[in-house]
Simulated assay, not measured.
Amino acid sequence: MENFEWTAIQNNDASYDNQFWYAVKSTHIFCRPSCPSRLPKRENITIYYDPNDAIEAGYRPCKRCRPLNQPVDNRTWVSEINTILENNYQQNLSLKELAYQAHGSQSYLRHVYKQETGMTPQQKLLEIRMSQAEIMLVNSDQAVAVIGRKVGFDNPAYFIQKFRQKFGKSPLQYRLQRIKA
């Protein structure tokens, strides 16, 4: 990437719109230089001089800046949100952070996600975390608190409570029952 391109992206310089587009490797989204979304790390950016090249490389258009001058399909956006959730479930992923990463507003993201999937992004995140915890409990001998932290729960008691709600038993009871089976 040239310095002028980086400067244009940093300054949200609309004079470079339709001259080049930038794609962000960590989110699989591409934008116009003027996009008001959070500035990505320079090393995660790839420059394209044709937006179709970005699409062919597997990037989807940003919901916020609409680099193709057309709205992004909701199903495509929900798929991208799911990818973000699956790749970042270990982190403290608030709705605000998710909206930043998915290039949309918090309220609209929550509305579209629930409309398309029947659940909120937070419910999906909890589902992913519980699934990962289940795998770790069965396939490792790590302590329950360690597994809880690895799947995104800082508070072991809260992790145990949520696990019990999902599976009807504590993580330790679940592990012991699966080992005996």
Results as ranks from 00 to 15, higher is better:
136 M>C: 15
160 I>E: 12
97 E>I: 08
157 A>D: 09
139 N>V: 03
146 V>W: 11
137 L>V: 10
144 V>I: 15
108 Y>T: 13
101 Q>K: 13
161 Q>M: 10
142 Q>L: 14
98 L>N: 01
97 E>S: 07
148 G>L: 07
148 G>K: 07
120 T>L: 08
145 A>E: 15
142 Q>P: 00
132 Q>H: 15
114 K>N: 10
106 Q>R: 15
105 S>Q: 09
125 L>G: 06
104 G>A: 13
94 S>K: 06
160 I>D: 09
124 K>W: 03
115 Q>A: 06
108 Y>S: 13
99 A>L: 02
151 V>F: 04
131 S>E: 11
154 D>L: 10
113 Y>P: 00
118 G>W: 12
158 Y>Q: 13
121 P>A: 08
156 P>F: 11
95 L>S: 12
156 P>G: 04
135 I>C: 02
100 Y>C: 02
108 Y>E: 13
138 V>I: 15
116 E>K: 07
154 D>N: 14
114 K>F: 08
115 Q>T: 05
146 V>D: 14
109 L>G: 09
125 L>V: 06
152 G>C: 10
119 M>Y: 11
95 L>F: 04
130 M>C: 00
89 Y>W: 07
96 K>L: 13
158 Y>G: 05
126 L>G: 02
118 G>T: 15
95 L>M: 11
98 L>W: 06
158 Y>C: 04
125 L>A: 08
133 A>G: 12
93 L>N: 03
100 Y>L: 05
138 V>H: 02
92 N>A: 06
118 G>K: 11
130 M>N: 00
121 P>N: 07
117 T>E: 15
94 S>V: 02
139 N>H: 13
146 V>I: 14
98 L>E: 02
126 L>H: 05
143 A>P: 02
121 P>K: 05
140 S>C: 00
130 M>K: 00
139 N>R: 11
106 Q>T: 15
129 R>V: 01
159 F>G: 03
